[in-house]
Design a protein around this nucleic acid. Structure first.
Length: 828
DNA sequence: AGCACGCCGACT
DNA sequence: GTCGGCGTGCTC
């Protein structure tokens, strides 16, 4: 039979502008298919995992294709829905498909090669004679270990730069380089212990007992423990070796002895890392309030002829129960459901609520999840079929990246806290918005989307008002809870009258006292750590700045260091001012740390904790703080944005916004929208069943429209006013923005290039170009930045404009000095 | 992303 | 004089 020659266009997880074509080896004819991963050599030596996009018979012209080295998958790991999503994303967000592949595939599925150094085949001791001292050490090591990595050679020689050394050794036929693919995914292994079948019998056991009683009492104890443990386990549950040895390391030897005596068996099994939770068979009935039922009916009705529904429900209005019902429906229809949340932090609270209703059907997926876990979730979702119904993989709860999972039949996507800006990826490319991409993805699957928020993004509300999305509102809080009372503390007045206690107005101070006396809890919200402690010389007003970025350094008390929040630059506190030599260096501004301290001074004995990026860096510290607060081991929680997001506590009756002005002052056309959202969200934490909460907003501008709107719980007045402004100044939702950031190490070069690039853009897009301008932070990691903003009318043919932009940009930067550029479509 | 090729500075 | 810095262009 004539063998046919095939070629495969593959996608590499790199920022490249096209697919690359490889030759399919004959033995792989038929097994190389779209959506499978293959190993290819790309460049001189490096091996990569690539994704097969097309298989065809057209021999490429102009180059000799390399062969595909191996096929990694039996069945596709990426489906056509995903490839279609990637295509759309790359054209909409002006990025490379390879960038998306890189972001989409969990790292365990992306193998890359590592350079290993092996002993040269013609290695001999004689060749070691005329080596330098360090070369000799390496030669000895390779003779002993047969294989070394570059890092190992660095360790052996104690020398940081070893490339030339290695090169010499290769020439001298001591070493030979080889690329080795290393598997990144390792299944979790457990050793299960059973009694050997012949000892299941009482009599046989009896005999063993007798025998051991004198000779091996410790072994007998171990055996008894095993038998007891096996009996106390529910049927079908395995006895894990790790469970037995966890508290008693000495048991290991006894187990081994019992094993070699043939009394017990030990089987190593690969087990799932993610379906560990107890499987639940009986799911509680959900009783919806009449408002919830009404909203649910409305949503269902709308979804019959509209893809997207905005569910506008005040905080604690019981949106989750509605989501649960909608997910149930999707599952009952034999489809998958995706529940998107803005932040990983929120998953822990929500997952427990979903597990109650869906048990193991729900899997969690986000970036802080381990690489192995993510690979397992990917597999589960990929292997799910409609026949499996509510099997694990049918429901995914996750952050924005869960959008990339290999869903084959999505019925529903919920985007909760839809307004949250962390749905937009900022860095690196692809700079996508998970809410918007979810809507596109739902289109591909003919699935429904429910966007939920108490304070919808103005773009979303605009789409709802214009009829693009359906609109359903949920106005009363669950269980007849009232909205909190929002009081304004005028800082100006208190400052003049000298009534401030540190950063606390008399009103807030008083309210905190009252709340603590009533044995209730308090949450204090401080805008962000960017506004936290910085130092200043009292004599000359010198302020420490980052060497690499255009920002002031932030003081971290715990480590007694100054740190840059952009590049991580860290330095010790100077003893004296480097500018004037003075030693009066003091604190300025106030951050969560400072508030925490003030609390301790003003309210001695009160238990206070702080929740911000610093205190929640480790995996469990976040949960620990939450638990401590929930269990009322704390009276006051001081935090940044983190405390505003969807956390529900039962005993909080007071929320304080320390300084509303810092967010209002933020130089961004969305600052009003944001500030209102933030105040509304944090206010939602106050008050529980039968108890009206209170919110104190401290501000120097008590008459500011945002403050007034927040106090009145009035979303729409501010929305309407802002929309008029947006229309006047040509901002979203009436216009679409594309922000292009140009970066270079020298500001003069940057200025020149950015200016001429902007000039070309002005020529191509007259009336649509703003800038270039230095952004708020004009230098990061030694690169100067300049922004150019493009504004296009909402209804403009964006696709062709983006294609033109892509083309112009590519042409311009092809023969300009080397600058880096980043394009951000719909920046937030 | 990585890697090789190619041109300018501080060293044996 | 060379070694080695990193700017530049290419990878099927």
């Amino acid at each position: 039979m004539e063998r046919e020659t095939f070629f495969a266009d593959v996608l590499l997880p790199l920022s490249l502008s096209s697919y690359y074509t490889y030759r399919v080896p004959y033995e792989c004819n038929g097994t190389v298919t779209r959506g499978k991963r293959v190993v290819v050599q790309f460049g001189r030596k490096k091996l990569y995992t690539a994704l097969v996009i097309n298989v065809h018979k057209a021999a490429p012209a102009g180059f000799q294709p390399k062969y595909i080295l191996s096929v990694l998958d039996q069945a596709p790991v990426v489906n056509d829905f995903q490839l279609a999503l990637w295509k759309w994303m790359s054209s909409y967000y002006l990025c490379r498909e390879g960038d998306i592949m890189h972001a989409a595939l969990p790292s365990a599925l992306k193998l890359t090669s590592e350079t290993k150094l092996l002993q040269h085949p013609s290695f001999s001791k004689e060749k070691m004679d005329n080596l330098s001292e360090k070369e000799y050490v390496v030669a000895e090591a390779i003779d002993l270990r047969k294989q070394l990595t570059l890092d190992e050679i660095i360790a052996i020689t104690g020398q940081a730069k070893v490339i030339s050394l290695v090169k010499n050794l290769i020439e001298k036929e001591i070493l030979v380089p080889e690329e080795e693919l290393k598997e990144k995914y390792f299944p979790k292994k457990e050793v299960h212990i059973c009694l050997s079948p012949e000892y299941e019998d009482e009599a046989a056991l009896e005999a063993v007992f007798m025998q051991m009683e004198k000779k091996a009492p410790r072994r007998l104890d171990a055996l008894m423990l095993i038998i007891q443990s096996l009996r106390s386990l529910p049927p079908g549950k395995p006895l894990r070796r790790s469970e037995l040895t966890r508290n008693d390391k000495g048991l290991s030897a006894q187990l081994n002895a019992l094993h070699s005596a043939g009394i017990i068996t030990m089987h190593e099994k690969s087990v799932s890392r993610i379906t560990e939770a107890e499987d639940i068979r009986e799911f509680p009935e959900i009783v919806l309030s009449s408002e919830q039922q009404l909203a649910l009916d409305e949503i269902r009705n709308h979804l019959l002829n509209t893809r997207v529904v905005l569910l506008h429900g005040v905080t604690s209005s019981g949106k989750t129960e509605i989501y649960v019902q909608l997910i149930r429906q999707a599952i009952a229809e034999g489809k998958q459901a995706l529940f998107l949340l803005p932040e990983i932090a929120l998953t822990t609270q929500i997952i427990n609520r979903l597990r109650v209703h869906f048990g193991n059907s729900v899997v969690v997926y986000h970036s802080r999840y381990g690489a192995n876990e993510r690979a397992e979730v990917w597999d589960l979702v990929n292997l799910w079929t409609p026949e499996q119904g509510a099997a694990p993989g049918s429901i995914v709860l996750g952050a924005r990246s869960s959008l990339f999972l290999p869903f084959s039949k999505l019925g529903l996507i919920i985007v909760d806290e839809e307004h949250d800006t962390s749905f937009k990826q900022h860095e690196p490319s692809p700079r996508y918005h998970a809410r918007d991409a979810a809507i596109y993805l739902a289109g591909l699957h003919n699935a429904s989307v429910v966007l939920g928020s108490a304070t919808p993004a103005y773009e979303t509300m605009f789409n709802a008002e214009s009829g693009k999305y359906a609109y359903v509102s949920l106005n009363s809080r669950y269980g007849d809870m009232e909205l909190p009372e929002v009081l304004i503390a005028d800082l100006k007045e208190d400052t003049i009258r000298k009534k401030m206690k540190s950063n606390f107005s008399s009103l807030l101070f008083h309210e905190i006292q009252q709340t603590l006396t009533a044995a209730r809890q308090v949450i204090l919200f401080q805008n962000r750590r960017g506004f936290s402690l910085r130092l200043e010389c009292r004599d000359c007003h010198w302020i420490p700045e980052c060497k690499h970025c255009d920002v002031t350094l932030i003081y971290h008390k715990k480590s007694n260091h100054l740190r840059c929040h952009y590049c991580g630059y860290n330095t010790r506190l100077p003893d004296a001012c480097p500018a004037c030599g003075g030693t009066h260096i003091g604190m300025k501004g106030f951050g969560t740390e400072r508030i925490e301290e003030d609390i301790s001074l003003l309210f001695p004995g009160v238990r206070v904790a702080r929740m911000d990026l610093d205190t929640t860096r480790s995996r469990h510290s976040y949960q620990k703080i939450i638990n401590d607060f929930e269990d009322r081991n704390l009276d006051i929680l001081v935090g940044t944005q983190m405390v505003t997001k969807g956390l529900d506590f039962d005993h909080v009756s007071l929320v304080g916004v320390m300084n509303a002005d810092t967010m209002l002052a933020y130089p961004d056309f969305r600052s009003h929208e944001r500030s209102f959202q933030l105040i509304a969200q944090v206010s939602g934490r106050a008050g529980r069943k039968n108890e009206k909460g209170r919110v104190i907003v401290q501000t120097f501008k008590p008459d500011h429209p945002v403050i007034c709107a927040a106090a009145a719980h009035d979303y729409f007045t501010l929305y309407k006013a802002q929309l008029r402004e947006r229309a006047n100044f040509r901002y979203p939702p009436f216009y679409r923005l594309i922000r292009i950031t140009v970066k270079h190490k020298e500001s003069a070069v940057l200025d020149k290039i950015a200016a001429s690039y902007a000039a070309i853009l002005r020529e191509k897009f007259p009336g649509s170009v703003l800038g270039p301008e230095y952004p708020f932070v004009s230098k990061i990691r030694n690169y100067f930045l300049k922004d150019i903003i493009l504004k296009f009318e909402r209804n403009a043919r964006l696709k062709s404009k983006k294609e033109l932009l892509d083309d112009v940009t590519e042409r311009f930067f092809r023969d300009s000095p080397p600058v880096k550029i980043a394009i951000d479509v719909d920046p937030v």
